[in-house]
Amino acid sequence: MSSILKEIKEALAVLSIPEKAVFFPKFFKTGKGEYGEGDLFLGVKVPDQRSVAKEYYSKISLKELSELLSSKYHEHRLTALFMLISKFEKTKDLSIREEIVEFYLNHLSHVNNWDLVDSSCYKILGRYAYETKKENLLRDLSESEEMWHKRIAVVGTMHYVKKGSFELTKEFVTRNLKHPHDLMHKANGWLLREMGQKNGNELIHYLNKYYTEMPRTCLRYAIEKLDEEVRQDYLKGRI
């Protein structure tokens, strides 16, 4: 193990909170058959992980990040992703950004819980796809059989939504509208809600076409910011 990796792991270990180490496995569903099965936790809060990442991101190599991102401990992986995001955001060199995107895609098997996905995918993959017009990077993931890949794709379009571009979000939500997993229902509804925050007419138009087909969780997330009367109209099928 390199000295930098040792320092990072020791820094996270010092920040471990025993009560959190007990709570997190339940919160992130690590039991047998659950989506986070087998994941291990140190018990470090996210702000503390961000602080560690801020201190070390410029000092750690991608090779060392690969080892950290491959860790069995959840906080090691999330801290690694925070550092990867910083490396991506702090450089304007396209070749370095391409190297980081390739690294991210090659390590998707370790981006395997909703917080790991949601914290990283749109800041790295979504932004890169938008800026280089390489939507197929996300589209290929949306068509994958792997649930985490599908979530990376739709949440990755958050960067598009923030820029006022909605077609890719609608495409991915529609493709996986009836996915069996609740985590996809939540992600789809979340991105539709964010689209509505940017352009209410876009959301209403999409809802009017698809709301009767949506899983209830997806619909509730999507309409969360609408006026209560309108929310009830959708929930009760009065549109």
Results as ranks from 00 to 15, higher is better:
E102N: 15
Q197D: 02
Y73T: 11
G164Y: 03
K134P: 02
F82N: 04
A80D: 08
T30D: 10
V117F: 00
T132K: 14
Y210Q: 03
V155F: 04
Y57G: 06
Y122K: 03
P215E: 08
V22P: 01
V161R: 01
V230C: 09
V173A: 03
K59H: 07
L68E: 11
L62Y: 12
W114L: 04
K90C: 14
K32N: 10
P25K: 06
K150P: 06
T79S: 14
T212Y: 03
L219G: 06
E167F: 07
S165N: 14
R139G: 06
K20T: 04
K6F: 08
H205V: 04
H149T: 00
K90T: 14
E10Y: 13
L65W: 06
I223E: 07
I96G: 01
M158C: 10
F27I: 06
K170N: 02
E145M: 07
R231L: 01
N199C: 03
D227S: 11
V155E: 10
G164T: 08
D182Q: 09
G196I: 02
V111F: 07
G200F: 00
E55N: 08
K209P: 00
L81H: 09
E224N: 09
K59C: 05
T132G: 04
F166Y: 14
K26N: 13
K54T: 06
T217A: 11
D93A: 13
E146F: 09
R231E: 08
S86L: 15
K133C: 11
R193A: 04
F24R: 07
A53Q: 01
G189L: 05
L78K: 05
V173E: 00
R127F: 05
L203Y: 02
K150D: 05
N112I: 11
E213D: 12
L108T: 14
L116Q: 14
L137H: 08
A222M: 00
R193T: 00
R97E: 15
E102M: 08
S95K: 15
P25V: 10
M83G: 11
I8L: 09
L219K: 02
D182A: 03
K59R: 15
D140L: 12
I17S: 07
V161Q: 03
S119F: 08
K9V: 11
E64L: 09
I85R: 02
Q232A: 09
C121F: 02
